[in-house]
Nucleic acid binder design. Structure first.
Lengths: 219, 219
DNA sequence: GATAGTGGATAGTGACACTCTCCGTTATAG
DNA sequence: CTATAACGGAGAGTGTCACTATCCACTATC
């Protein structure tokens, strides 16, 4: 398969494929002549992964590059925890502005309290940790008076724990097919995110339409 | 308060404030002379809302414009369901490409089945509906073989329903302070989103580190 | 009355994700 | 064995976006 066919099957314009090649998101094909290369199923799969992360998850090209590099670095036999390294690359590391260390300290202690209460076996380098800090700081900043202690945050922790339990079943075996597991791990994280947010909005509508009816029915 | 002071208190550069004024995100101050205007607390609050939607929720300027317009159109006395109109503006309407109607039809029927099973009182115009369709289509497209019937999606629905129940408590009274309720509704939707996603990643790490230990401990 | 600051208009900037054009080379149809 | 189409690769160009900088005549304030 050469470029035109790769473009046709993937639905990605050749100019864009060339761009991804330049950015090293996509490995080059096997060159049969100075200006001829063969692409295979692997390129098709990689292209589909890139488009999913780009269009659906909204990641930038450079972030996708980091995620793909982390995925490529995975070796069968690595502990399953390595699966999370690629996921960690999906978010930016935390940079604390000089004048806001207090806010971050408070957020850190709130999160630590929450994680202790939930008895989660995670640490400050785990994927999601920095994002959680950022979110809690934003909550303090933009919804002043919003408490972010475990009493308030625990429902969120419990809700996502039940999700994690179904997403990673008891018989989950990362050793079975490491490449497929890795792909599923990254895509699952990225593709289910917008679904969760969308369903939450729908749940809000249902809740407003049904439960507090008594409050406004009498007006 | 004039522009320099508004900038100092909000932490937003004057050039950016002027830009928001041009884009009509921020109403002009009360003009006391051809080149003098007074700004108040309302401008400070609005600016904080804009920054939250921009920086934390990552919404575009034009989307923020639509959300703010919807918020401004809210009138005390409107049914609480109007609270969701501003939230609906946070997402793009669904545009179905000509050649993919089948995928969308399948996604629609899967979602309908799920909503029926959950007995949610929502419809196709509710905020989140189009996003959910988009997500399910992406799941089919990028994780072929992924089933999206209620058996798979129900845990997500149940998880966000418990969230909605704590986010909108039984004694929730939208008539109490409509402006504050509206602000809280929009900001709550936007600011808790990244927190949910971050906690989900942490839950995955915990799950991988604890439960399926038996699977890889023997290697 | 000097100087700093103001609101408003216009133009410029840098990042981003492509997209276009060109080139010499290679496949392939007639 | 041509003629033509397609190829891979390099570089420059494009459109959008969210600001940011520069001017300007005018106003506040010391």
């Amino acid at each position: 398969m050469r470029m035109a066919e790769l473009s046709r099957q993937s639905g990605v314009p050749t100019a864009t494929i060339k761009y991804y090649l330049r950015e090293r998101l996509l490995p080059g094909g096997e060159t049969t002549a100075p200006n001829q290369a063969q692409y295979g199923r692997e390129h098709l799969d990689r292209l589909s992964l890139i488009r999913a992360l780009r269009e659906t998850a909204g990641l930038s090209i450079s972030t996708i590059g980091r995620v793909l590099t982390a995925m490529d670095d995975y070796r069968p036999g690595d502990s399953p925890e390595h699966l999370t390294i690629a996921v960690a690359e999906m978010s930016e590391p935390l940079a604390i502005p000089d004048d806001e260390t207090d806010d971050y300290e408070r957020a850190r202690s709130d999160l630590r309290e929450l994680l202790d209460e939930l008895e989660w076996n995670v640490d400050t380098t785990s994927p999601g940790y920095d994002d959680a800090i950022r979110s809690i700081v934003a909550l303090h900043r933009y919804l002043p008076g919003m408490v972010t202690n475990p009493r308030r945050l625990r429902p969120y922790g419990e809700a996502v724990r039940t999700l994690a339990n179904t997403e990673i079943p008891d018989d989950y075996d990362p050793a079975a097919d490491p490449a497929a597991t890795l792909r599923f791990s990254v895509l699952g994280t990225a593709l289910f995110e917008p679904l969760i947010l969308a369903l939450r909005k729908l749940a809000h509508v249902d809740r407003i339409r049904t439960t507090p009816a008594a409050t406004w029915a009498k007006r």
